[in-house]
Design a protein around this nucleic acid. Structure first.
Lengths: 172, 172
DNA sequence: CCCATGTCAGTATCACTGAAATAA
DNA sequence: CTTATTTCAGTGGTACTGACATGG
């Protein structure tokens, strides 16, 4: 079956994609790697990456209200509701009503939740922690700058696009 | 209601999270910004970020087999199947059977799909392209290096974790 | 028969929109 | 009454596992 040419075993045999497409691919690769690691964490530790980040932030700011946490994470409140629901179902967090404002639910970790508010093997932190020391502080600073700008730029994406309605399966 | 202290209008009033947690938060922020931009693109242009990346890669490598594309993107074949199905439903790609190996479906862009295989406003590329020129080539190179290492490190996450089975809602 | 390619079914998370309930 | 906080219902995309159909 003619397996001596550049066949499908090695993706490295493919040429690069070119400038920004290459960088774009890298960005999505990081994104994708994150999602996969998150899924794997869910299988091994019992909670996903975003869930773990929420746990750690609640651990850092006990009794934080849900809305403030949502703003901190730039999440829509309804999105956070789902995340919190899953964490509560697993018994990692609890909610108390704010005695001074009964609309608010103040978040806290349960004793079980506190077991996750630590550094741990197999987490995204651990992977990053293991990866980052190989770089100089300068490189890390540069990366942080670039990532912050990318995140900021993405926030404003699609604001003034005058797309000629190419969407919609209008022919079906 | 005592609004002169650090209240909920400005998330910047919150203290930093500390070392890796801070970096982790940034990573997830980029991830999250990507997902939101992807969703917005789907509303304005009619296809998501990953879908667009697939379109651009197919445009770069016409008649690429599905499996090779999956490997290129580090995607599970079944995941790619779903992405391709949505692209096909929207009439952006088509599949032909490889005459020499009828198991393979070779991917190509339709004329409609080619309309998306260009630079465009409101895309993730555009945002990145607009954001990156503000940085020196050196910083970009550093970022690329760090991101590649992070992606690589994440790939190996959760391999040897001996977690004391904290998962599962066993009390319910 | 065995392996490769690809799809399908089922499941879970994330993220939104829009509506609603409750409290300030 | 108006606004703020949070939850809920519904939708869609991504990603997996495991099973399956088909072809080499």
């Amino acid at each position: 079956m003619a397996s001596m040419d550049s066949n499908s075993n090695e993706p490295s045999s493919l040429p690069p994609l070119g400038d920004e497409l290459d960088f774009l691919s890298l960005i999505w690769a990081v994104d994708h790697a994150l999602q996969r690691a998150s899924k794997r964490m869910n299988a091994t530790l019992g909670l996903t990456g975003p869930q773990r980040l929420v746990v750690r932030i609640i651990g850092k700011f006990p009794s934080i209200p849900a809305g403030q946490l949502a703003r901190l994470l730039h999440l829509h409140p309804s999105t956070l509701t789902g995340v919190l629901k899953r964490l509560e179902r697993r018994g990692l967090i609890d909610r108390r009503l704010d005695p001074r404002d009964a609309r608010r639910s103040l978040l806290g970790l349960t004793s079980k939740g506190r077991q996750f508010d630590i550094d741990r093997e197999g987490t995204v932190e651990a992977a990053i922690h293991g990866a980052l020391p190989g770089f100089s502080a300068e490189k890390l600073r540069a990366t942080r700058e670039v990532l912050e700008l990318i995140a900021g730029a993405l926030e404003h994406t699609g604001r003034q696009s005058h797309a000629p309605d190419l969407r919609g399966p209008s022919t079906a």
